[in-house]
Nucleic acid binder design. Sequence first.
DNA 1: AGCACA
Length: 444
Amino acid sequence: MASASHPQFRYSQPPSKVLHLRNCPWECTEEELVELGKPFGRVVSTKCNVGANRNQAFIEFADLNQAITMVSYYASSSEPAQLRGKTIYIQYSNRQEIVNNKTTGDASGNVLLVTIEGVEPRDVSIDVLHLVFSAFGFVHKIATFEKTAGFQALVQFSDLETASAAKNSLDGRSIPRYLLPEHVNYCNLKITFSAHTDLSVKFQSHRSRDYTNPNLPVAPSAMDGSGQFVLGLDGRKQEQESNVLLASIENMQYHVNVDVLYTVFSAFGPVQKIAMFEKNAGWHALIQYPDVQTATVAKESLEGHCIYDGGFCKLHISSSRHTDLSVKVNNDRSRDYTIPNSAVMSSQPSILGHQPVNAVGPAAASVYSGAPFAAGFDSNVMAAQPVAEWGVNAASMSQTMAPSMPRTSYMIPGTAPHEMAPGVMHVHGHTVPPHVRPIPPYGH
DNA sequence: AGCACA
């Protein structure tokens, strides 16, 4: 029955001088493995902490007969093989030698091997990893892959010090919840040093990135015939970018009209038209910009953010298939700002009567300030905050980083501290000139 | 309790 449900283990392995041990105790040592094998022959090599749970190990004997002796002994013994009192299971490895056994005692370098537990690979994009690890320094390259140990990534830093800082702060912690899809509850990182020093990344793709070489070609698999990206950063099919955004407003406790949306979306560039509509018991809006790039920046900056503190009026933004909205009437629900009259009208703070004064507080005040290009945008709203919070002093942090992360409504996804130069910020790889830098109308 | 870093 057991063999029927595990057909891959139905046949015993052919003998090898390498033995595969499973169910090993957590972080058992090479010395313990040597002690275990010594009675049966000369142990020439060992490897421990193997696999996703790091509870497998290998012992290589000098001679095949020694391995056979050990396996035979425990096959007929009344006492099972044990490490630290824990029963372990021994079989012949399907390989003939232990490779890549660590050469220097604590091999550490500038590249980290990250095992991402508890998620499907599509749940954690390479950009989320980039964001998380960039908090510690410039991330040169990332390569992700799936092996027996699960979903893993190699993350290359400039030097051992940065890599070490990232490892110390992130090992054993979860990626912040708000960077994960809603259905994922946690996502644990297990981090070790890789023996690599320089990853070879041939293409920019949803599996690998070279952040030192923006001119690297995009993998053919991530392009369509017209040369546009069709794969998202997570490898999923991506909607075609458009100059018109579709915003769904979740948890709309407060009145949202075109004026509110105009203020929020004008932070990224000129808004031409807005049309709101109700569908499936929820409110949605189409927002038209003059160009795709502005719309894309707005989409990536605002996605998942709330217009008001407290999770009210949360925005979910996608690209619309529309390119030019037909706005027939200017009212609370639709507006064409390219018609001079209505544009003037909208710039007046004429909506104060709708302001949910008591509930919103100062956070929302800037929404109504009528100054969408205010100079107040400063480094204090950028993603620089995680740097301080995850930095080398993060050792005293609690197990999960999430509680100490900035609130979602402050977070501008994709901003990497190292990329920031005065007056310029990057939003998902786009350089945003200062005059269109998004102010966070949703406030502090 | 099930094979190692693309």
